[in-house]
Simulated scan of single mutants.
Amino acid sequence: MTTSAERVGLRRRPVQSLALFVGVVFLLVGLLGFVPGATADLYLLEFAGPHSGAMLFGVFQVSLLHNLLHLLFGVAGILSAWTWGASRLFLAVGGFLYLLLWVYGSVVHSMDHDGGAANFAPFNPADNLLHLALGAVMVVLAVVGTVYERTHGQYPGREQRGR
């Protein structure tokens, strides 16, 4: 039995669902960066840079710019879920950008402990590990979602098996 979503072609492909999930998580994290309790020492929130004393979940240093970027990235993920190509692009390119952010944060943290001009965002070791994990997971999700679709005959441009 087919559902009404399948009949009108509104069924999401796996990679679209993954992009939607990642987008929602980023949106929630961005919002939590402004919530007292979820963010310790919220009154120490700075606009940008390493001097912000606000800590999301008491572990991850955040700034106003950091939270706004999480919100923007969340909205981008949610909007990308409308199409297969945009979802895959969001996960792959977004993951790559987070891997670059991890490299940048590692270099800035190791070279510039006092937070000079090059350090536009908080980069502590916990943040750097999170950026590494997010980047790797997003790239893996883009690849795994695509491989899943190809093995199940759902890759765009191919007819689905069994129809």
Rank of each mutant, 00 (worst) to 15 (best):
M111N: 08
V24G: 10
V143G: 08
T146C: 04
G49K: 10
G30T: 12
G116L: 02
G33E: 02
V62D: 06
L10K: 01
Q154W: 15
L18V: 10
G153E: 03
A38I: 07
V15P: 00
T146P: 06
A92M: 13
G157A: 05
T83Y: 03
V24N: 10
D127W: 07
G49Y: 06
Y104C: 09
Q61E: 11
A142S: 04
G145W: 04
V147C: 11
A81D: 10
G162V: 05
G94I: 07
A118T: 06
H66A: 04
Q16G: 00
A48I: 05
G37T: 04
G33W: 01
R150N: 02
L18F: 09
V35Q: 14
D112V: 10
L71G: 03
V75M: 07
A136C: 03
G53Q: 07
F26T: 08
V107Y: 15
V137R: 02
D127N: 14
L31D: 03
T146K: 05
T3L: 13
R161W: 15
V107L: 14
S52Q: 08
R88L: 14
H131N: 07
T3Q: 11
A48N: 15
L68S: 04
S80M: 07
P14G: 05
R150D: 00
W102S: 13
W84E: 14
R88I: 00
R163E: 15
G33H: 02
G162K: 09
L97F: 14
L101Y: 10
M111R: 15
A5T: 02
L18A: 09
G30F: 11
L44R: 15
L99Q: 09
L32Q: 14
R163S: 15
F26I: 08
D127F: 04
H70F: 10
V35R: 14
R158L: 06
N67W: 02
A118G: 14
A117H: 14
G53W: 04
L69V: 12
A81Y: 09
V139T: 02
D41T: 07
G135F: 06
G145E: 04
E46M: 14
R161N: 12
V107C: 10
A133L: 15
E149K: 09
F60P: 02
G30S: 12
P156F: 00
